[in-house]
Simulated scan of single mutants.
Amino acid sequence: MPNLQPLALYLLAGLCEIGGGYLMWQWLKADQPAWTGLLGAFLLIVYGWVATWQSMTFGKTYAVYGGVFILMSIAWAWYFDGFRPDRYDVIGGVVCFVGIGIILFWPRS
């Protein structure tokens, strides 16, 4: 169970960052109302705060989050933008997923 807390925090951080960026994109590129951009900016601030809840060092936290961000970005684009990942997107996502596992869970001496 202790391994689930960091993963849940990464998921929450990813939703805040990708959701915030998406709302900003909608406001600036798709002519959505200004409140959309304000909500996006708020979520981006919350993302920065949520990331500090990790118990790891800054470098390790952001190294793992980079992989999480890639995976979540592919999933977000698939769900919200109709992007269909090809096999290379899937292979790249699997590579990132393996990297996340190595960084987080590989035994250290």
Rank of each mutant, 00 (worst) to 15 (best):
Y88C: 00
L39T: 12
T36K: 07
L104V: 11
Y88V: 07
L11Q: 02
P107Q: 15
V50M: 03
W27G: 14
V90A: 09
G21M: 14
G14T: 04
Y62W: 12
A75R: 09
T57I: 01
A41K: 09
S73H: 10
L39I: 15
V98D: 06
P107F: 07
A13Y: 01
V94L: 15
T57L: 04
G21Y: 06
L4C: 06
Q5P: 00
Q5S: 02
T52F: 02
G40K: 00
F58Q: 05
V94M: 11
A63F: 04
A13L: 01
A13V: 01
A30C: 10
W76M: 12
L43W: 03
P33K: 08
V90M: 07
Y62P: 06
I100A: 02
W53V: 00
V68K: 04
Y65W: 10
C96W: 01
A77C: 15
Y47R: 00
V98Q: 08
V90K: 06
G67M: 12
A41Q: 09
V98Y: 10
G66W: 05
F58D: 06
M72T: 05
I102K: 14
Q54M: 10
A41C: 10
I100F: 01
T61P: 03
G21V: 13
G19W: 00
G14V: 03
I74F: 08
S109T: 11
L11S: 06
Y22C: 00
I74Q: 08
L28T: 14
F58P: 00
G101Y: 04
W78D: 00
W35S: 04
G93Q: 05
R108S: 12
P33F: 07
M56P: 01
R84D: 14
F69H: 11
G82Y: 02
M24N: 11
F80I: 14
V68H: 01
A13C: 02
A75H: 06
Y22I: 00
G101I: 03
G14D: 09
F69G: 01
S55A: 15
A8M: 13
W25Y: 14
K60G: 02
L104Q: 11
D31Y: 05
G21F: 13
Y88K: 08
M24A: 09
F97G: 08
L23F: 12
G59P: 10
I18Y: 04
I103D: 01
F83L: 12
A13D: 01
L39W: 08
F97R: 04
E17A: 09
Y65R: 02
G48M: 10
L71I: 13
A41I: 13
Y65E: 02
I18K: 03
K60S: 03
I45Y: 05
D89A: 14
G40R: 00
L44R: 03
A30K: 15
S73F: 03
G92E: 05
N3T: 05
G19Q: 00
Y88H: 12
S55G: 14
